[in-house]
């Protein structure tokens, strides 16, 4: 009765994501121009029939670059979130299932991660590892693990002592089997929600890093990289920031809408009840630090 059906917002979000994903994936097949095709005689042309989103300083088609940039942005978001998910799942499971010292250690590490300024962590990781797409994903993933770990741990604590788990244990099931078969499925829905909401935040964090000059390198920029590169032209060639900005905003908005919708649909209990359960379990499923780099 409490689970509310997905509202119009969720539907709009899903539709938006479908359109964006299709456009980004099909870009190469449909568009007349490649994202790296330079033509200096056509530099900085405003939007027109030939170039719907205009051209940049090198005469490259902004539409083609926005769509290809989407691949980078979405890939960074997905990979980084997956890294965060895997790290958080491993750490959270270990903490929740084994308890005791493992639990204390993991949770203090999570606390430290939370208390640490995101930006410093990102700069540090980006500086130490060989720069590139993977480094970026690793850095963004490493920043997000703690929230996932807390969530998983809380869920596991809630189901660990349930009867069917106890029964399976009595029947002689091993740790891994217990976790995989009986415990993890219980964490699935909140994880999906957090994963989806985090996608938007991660794409945003990548954009912020680009603004600071630490994002994806040219000539294959992400949306954030395109906006950052276009900012000096905000007054002379506004289409350079406007289009990647709008698409980036629409994408993050869509992820947020879908994430919120999923939360409403999947979460069996109200926030209050969740809060109480969390407290009994010892720790709330605290949200990640706002917006990463703001």
């Amino acid at each position: 009765m409490r689970a509310r059906a997905a509202g119009p917002g969720t539907a709009a979000g899903l539709a938006g994501l479908a359109v964006i994903a299709a456009a980004v994936l099909l870009a190469g097949a449909v568009l007349p121009h490649g994202p790296l095709e330079m033509d200096l005689s056509r530099s900085l042309q405003p939007p027109s029939g030939a170039h719907l989103f205009g051209t940049d300083a090198f005469g490259r088609d902004v539409l083609a670059r926005v769509l290809h940039g989407g691949r980078v942005s979405l890939a960074v978001g997905l990979v980084a979130r997956s890294i965060a998910l895997l790290l958080g799942l491993a750490a959270g499971t270990a903490a929740g299932y084994f308890g005791g010292r493992t639990d204390a250690l993991v949770m203090r590490l999570a606390d430290v991660t939370f208390a640490f300024p995101t930006l410093l962590l990102l700069i540090a990781i980006m500086a130490v590892v060989t720069p590139g797409l993977w480094a970026l994903c690793a850095a963004l993933g490493a920043v997000g693990w703690a929230a996932m770990a807390r969530l998983v741990r809380g869920q596991i604590l809630a189901v660990r002592e349930r009867e069917y788990v106890q029964a399976a244990r009595a029947a002689g099931a091993g740790h891994l089997r217990l976790i995989a078969r009986y415990i993890l499925p219980q964490c699935l829905s909140p994880l999906i929600v957090v994963f989806t909401l985090g996608l938007g935040m991660t794409i945003m964090a990548e954009a912020s890093l680009s603004f600071l000059g630490l994002g994806v390198q040219p000539p294959a920029p992400s949306w954030g990289g395109m906006i950052a590169a276009g900012i000096p032209f905000m007054r002379t060639a506004p289409w350079l920031t406007l289009f990647p900005g709008l698409v980036l905003t629409a994408t993050i908005l869509a992820f947020n809408l879908v994430g919120d919708g999923l939360r409403d649909a999947l979460d069996p209990r109200s926030p209050l009840a969740r809060r109480r359960a969390g407290r009994v379990a010892g720790d709330g499923a605290a949200p990640a630090r706002a917006g990463g780099v703001r």
């Binding site: 938007g200 945003m204 954009a207 912020s208 603004f211 954030g224 906006i227 950052a228 900012i231 905000m234 920031t241 900005g245 980036l248 905003t249 629409a250 993050i252 908005l253 947020n256 809408l257 917006g291 703001r294």
Partner: peptide
């Protein structure tokens, strides 16, 4: 929701 989805540096400018 739109506000939280706009990159902060762009929004600021």
């Amino acid at each position: 929701l739109v506000g939280v989805s706009i990159p902060v540096f762009w929004l600021g400018l």
